[in-house]
Design a protein around this nucleic acid. Structure first.
Lengths: 209, 209
DNA sequence: CACGGAACTGGAACGTGTTGCTGATTATGC
DNA sequence: GCATAATCAGCAACACGTTCCAGTTCCGTG
């Protein structure tokens, strides 16, 4: 057991550096995630090789491992950062659509379009997500929370008041599960984009009625 | 591209040997799958090491790769064989329960119990399933078909007549997706058995009503 | 400023999936 | 029974994730 290298200022942040550290450290972290993102977008999961990330981010391999204890953490963190950046922008305007089903379908289809425009990136992040174990729980939970937030926000339209109900969360989680499974079959080349869209639509209409 | 080593007698069987070949070959295949199964049950995904499988099955590493082109194919094939053996036995008696929801929950919980009794094995097979790419489509589809068959069979109770409807298949697929996602979070240690059971129950009640 | 420890670099090394090679063994057609 | 091809065992080698180590640089503190 070696010295725990970096720690977040306030809370125990599980595995990876978040906001603490010097400016140089925050910059290294950013460079690493940028490199990861670029390599993933270019060549998918297999192209995100730790040596390549380290070189592209201009850090040593050991440093990369100090920041992210595994390739999985690295990729899941990259996905987390992306969602953190996208989520607010996606939620500023009310979602168009007359029924919850319509609105949820709207946001899911928009997400699907986004991911299908970057298939390699999507493949890399999905693979990582699927391969994650309990040491990545922190990061995964963050992604899951973003996901359900997006869906529940779409379910209720204008009246974004009142706390989210149990029922709504349950529905969002089910849809999130279907989304994930569908994503996996798309990523692994077992289903076409059209099939995934149709399947998601079926699921939404089954659950929201 | 080397010579295509083994081929099924009648149809193109994608990647792995099925029933063709000599008795010795069928026996080797069986030994390999047995060894895979045993190692997986004992130590999970990581314990299924190709060298170890080869040794335990008493074949050379090259031979193992001749029969199964990758570790993933190997594990998914093992899962497929297992389902093929279990599915008929599970379907001979009508499923108890008064409503489709009750019956589906019954079979899903029975499956869950089975898998939770063999956590390492389940982990290994789930991981493989998640990591599979399009070269494993044949095997994966077989598993998916078994899964939807089990669920649709449970949805309709006694009256097992009349062809399965589109709607029923759609529902079964959605439940299969939730099942898979839930399984993944259980396998990866991000959710307890009780949580997965509760979540499945919620999903079933949402979809079947 | 000088010190001391944490962080970083560069690189070697290990484990495991995968591939390639060579000679022995087995099956198959005649 | 034999020639020939297919199959197999045994082994070396490669790729990539991960670990480890020795030396160097950075940075806060006395």
């Amino acid at each position: 057991m070696s010295t725990k290298p970096l720690s977040t200022s306030s809370s125990d942040e599980g595995a990876t550096v978040e906001r603490g550290g010097s400016a140089a450290q925050r910059d290294r972290r950013r460079r690493i995630l940028d490199a990861t993102y670029a390599l993933a977008a270019e060549g998918g999961f297999d192209a995100v090789q730790m040596r390549a990330v380290a070189e592209k981010a201009d850090v040593a391999l050991g440093t990369l491992y100090r920041y992210f204890p595994s390739k999985i953490h690295l990729l899941v963190s990259a996905l987390g950062r992306q969602l953190d950046e996208d989520a607010p922008r996606l939620q500023e305007r009310p979602v168009p659509g007359d029924t919850p089903a319509d609105r949820v379908l709207f946001v899911l289809k928009r997400m699907a379009r986004g991911m299908q425009g970057d298939p390699k990136l999507t493949e890399a992040l999905t693979r990582a997500f699927m391969f994650a174990d309990s040491t990545v729980t922190t990061e995964i939970d963050r992604v899951g929370a973003s996901m359900t937030a997006i869906v529940t926000h779409a379910m209720r339209g204008e009246d974004s008041e009142a706390p989210v109900t149990e029922e709504e969360v349950a529905i969002a989680r089910v849809l999130g599960d279907v989304w994930l499974a569908t994503l996996v079959s798309w990523v692994t080349g077992r289903a076409s984009a059209a099939e995934t869209a149709a399947h998601m639509e079926t699921a939404v209409r089954l659950v929201l009625r």
